[in-house]
């Protein structure tokens, strides 16, 4: 797959935005500036960025409880996302959703979800909606390895395959459902096999390689757009932080973490771009510096933003 300089900058920048956004939230949590929970996407950037880079602005995504990366990759506004995570009035959901419910329908982001597997129904419904309205859109439905043990996964993949809906189901296999490993919770260790039950094509991909993700997702997006129906992709990846802020990570080893950190998606891509002569070290540093400024501005904006007015408690419930 050909890669232009413009595209390389976009992919690298988004991955850096996500990484720095997440590192910043970890810092805000530690300082108690951010309250509540937050599930961080650091380490998994290539999946969201690679997958979303092959769809159009009016295509849809559904996201997960670990949804900051998807929201940023779907053209999310860093300031409005950061403000939302701090529960501020200027947040993308007016401070009513928070980390678990980042959504922006105007950009095709049908929302993160506090329930594991919760977005699979919405994604499948959006696929049905596209088909009924004879549109040429597609849906990328993200979820984790844990969600593939949930009933709605089976119900929806069956329907999508039966009705040939334009949905690409992307399982981000980061090896652990909170603390329980794939080995300890799935009878089938190769998760792509789950698609066999629905006669749905499936493929796994290296989730640390943004170009590999682009290639595989791009193929199945085209397949969906041509009316061939859904597909199931398993992106093998790893989350650097624990499940959430309070996770002591007793269920995995530091060696394993080190192994995956050496397969860092940003480093892999940066090196490749340098090798191919598309980006220089200086250019990469410049992008990183630019992103640092953006994140600082976003945090500054979020911290300085007001909380919602008390009257907002009862607004937005009904039309």
């Amino acid at each position: 797959m050909e890669i232009t300089k413009e595209l390389a900058i976009k992919l690298l920048k988004q991955m850096m935005q996500i990484r720095q956004f997440e590192d910043m939230i970890m810092e805000l949590l530690a300082k108690n500036i951010a309250e509540g929970g937050s599930h961080l996407y650091a380490g998994m950037e290539a999946v969201a960025v690679g997958a979303i880079s092959v769809i159009n602005p009016d295509d849809y995504i559904t996201s997960t409880h670990r949804g900051h990366g998807h929201a940023i990759a779907k053209d999310g506004d860093l300031k409005a996302l950061m403000a939302e995570i701090l529960g501020k009035k200027t947040g993308v959901c007016k401070g009513k959703g928070g980390s678990l419910h980042l959504a922006d329908l105007s950009k095709g982001n049908l929302g993160a979800n506090g329930i594991v597997g919760g977005g699979i129904g919405i994604a499948t419904g959006a696929g049905l909606s596209i088909k009924l309205q004879k549109q040429n859109k597609v849906v990328l439905c993200f979820f984790g390895d844990g969600a593939t043990n949930n009933g709605i996964f089976f119900e929806c993949l069956n329907m999508a395959s039966l009705w040939k809906l334009p949905v690409v189901y992307i399982c981000e296999n980061n090896k652990y459902a909170m603390s329980v490993s794939v080995e300890r919770s799935h009878a089938v260790k190769d998760l792509t096999k789950k698609a066999l039950a629905f006669d749905m094509p499936a493929e796994s991909v290296d989730g640390q390689d943004v170009l590999a993700v682009r290639e595989v997702v791009g193929k199945w997006v085209n397949y969906a757009r041509q009316g061939n129906g859904p597909s199931f992709i398993v992106a093998n990846t790893y989350r650097y932080y624990g499940h959430s802020r309070s996770d002591p990570r007793v269920y995995r080893t530091r060696e394993e973490e080190k192994f995956w950190r050496e397969r860092d998606p940003i480093i892999i891509f940066s090196n490749k771009m340098k090798e191919m002569g598309i980006l220089t070290e200086e250019e990469i540093n410049l992008i990183e510096e630019e992103v640092r400024k953006e994140i600082e501005e976003a945090v500054d904006f979020a911290i300085k933003s007001p909380y919602p007015e008390p009257e907002e408690l009862y607004t937005d419930l009904y039309v």
Binding site: G125, E155, C156
Partner: peptide, 21 residues
Amino acid sequence: DTPISENAIVGVALGAAITGM
């Protein structure tokens, strides 16, 4: 006609409802 999948029936209806149906 849907399969016997009540959770998906409601979830799919929701996805359709927020995207124009």
